[in-house]
Design a protein around this nucleic acid. Structure first.
Lengths: 224, 224
DNA sequence: GTTCTTTGCGACAGGATTGTGACACCGACG
DNA sequence: CGTCGGTGTCACAATCCTGTCGCAAAGAAC
């Protein structure tokens, strides 16, 4: 049984989502404020959090950030506007997905399943993105079923990037995490590593599908 | 119905995991101290033990060791940090898996299933991979029907690797699990052990079928 | 369009990692 | 006491990887 913590201040929305998701078989825990949500979270250890952006007191972004401080639990943001900034901010704050209000329960259910599936497949040590499959236990990478031989650095790079799909890593961060030592000058080293990685997993390295360049900042794994 | 003995001193964590795992359909037995845990274990004979590392009185390692004295029940360690030392120590003490706190119930559920699955597959005592056959009860190895004489170290190495086919073991892990003592310098020892093992079970040691090298990381048993 | 910055990519030499043989040590056993 | 199988250590070569340089290409700024 999957438990969902719903943090939403509007009593009407809260109640209706509680009932609807309950009908989908989720165990519902609700909170009307960010503070209450955070404390319910530590008490109940839910499997997933559905979080409204607009909250009295500490807002959704902040709640998201605090949850992320000591938990990897999946978070789905509820946002009222179609404002892209909210979405970006939400994902930046550590949300795994977002849904625009008003939301149909069936949509939310689908998103919850999708996010949980992703989280669980991470547990089994397998990360799938398109036709790329990364097994973190056997340290094997397959592309459309065909195994891709990887060198240690390429593999560490891919593992690091794919651990947080969508997140932008600066060259400095990648140097720290993949190469380990505090390199000073040569961030071209990272570019080179990325290139070698792309050569192996990208069909068309000029238009990479998995490892994106974020000019001026660094690199990012996965779509948008 | 699967019964889980949860040994955890923090009342909040204990209670929340008890509720959450209960929702997953496990019968929960809880204990707040190592002593209590040990006695509950003999009383209730749970299918699996989830054990916090930090306990007042006798700590998790010690509890683990005592459980192992007269039981093969799977043990999952809860450890607060990503501290590798804890992990190694835990596995050394006989734990089957470890999970880092704070833990999502879904994660713990997945681990419990995985460990139980493994435990069941260990029961039959025979592991077959291609023409290689490992009998974990009589401790005999046959290759295409012909018995292969193994030295103790080679056998421990093969048993350790084949217990988790596909998983990559670092040299350090193999030193801990196979050689047991905390060797400092020579990881070439592992390479040598692998070589000797390969010489016995591989047709063409230059292109091994069973024991693969994962450059930069370690070794792995079984097909890619 | 021009210029400047940033990134992609090939090449290469030095270096790290691993496979393998040789050898000494050690305990078991006769 | 001598032998012998098993094991830990060392040395060395082969192989594969990696860091760096240089230049081309692409993108951003103006």
């Amino acid at each position: 049984m999957t438990s969902v913590l719903l943090i939403e201040d509007d009593p009407l929305v809260r109640r209706s989502l509680e009932l609807a998701l309950g009908r989908y078989g989720y165990t519902m825990i609700t909170a009307a404020t960010g503070e209450n949500g955070l404390s319910r979270f530590t008490e109940e250890a839910p499997d997933i959090v559905v979080l409204d952006l607009m909250l009295p007191g500490i807002d959704g972004f902040e709640v998201c950030r605090r949850l992320r401080l000591d938990s990897q639990a999946p978070i789905i943001m509820l946002t009222a506007r179609t404002d892209d900034l909210d979405v970006v901010g939400g994902l930046e704050a550590g949300a795994d997905d977002y849904v625009v209000k008003p939301v149909q329960p069936a949509v939310l259910d689908a998103r919850i399943r999708a996010v949980l599936r992703r989280a669980v497949s991470d547990l089994d040590g397998v990360r799938s993105h398109g036709s790329l499959r990364i097994d973190t236990e056997s340290l094997t990478v397959t592309l459309g079923g065909a195994p891709v031989p990887m060198t240690p650095t390429e593999l560490r790079l891919l593992l690091t990037l794919s651990r947080s799909p969508g997140r932008v890593f600066s060259r400095q961060q990648l140097l720290e995490e993949v190469w380990g030592h505090g390199y000073l000058g040569d961030s071209r080293l990272v570019d080179n590593g990325i290139m070698r990685l792309r050569a192996k997993i990208e069909d068309d390295p000029a238009h990479p599908e998995y490892v994106q360049t974020v000019r001026g900042f660094g690199y990012r794994f996965g779509p948008v």
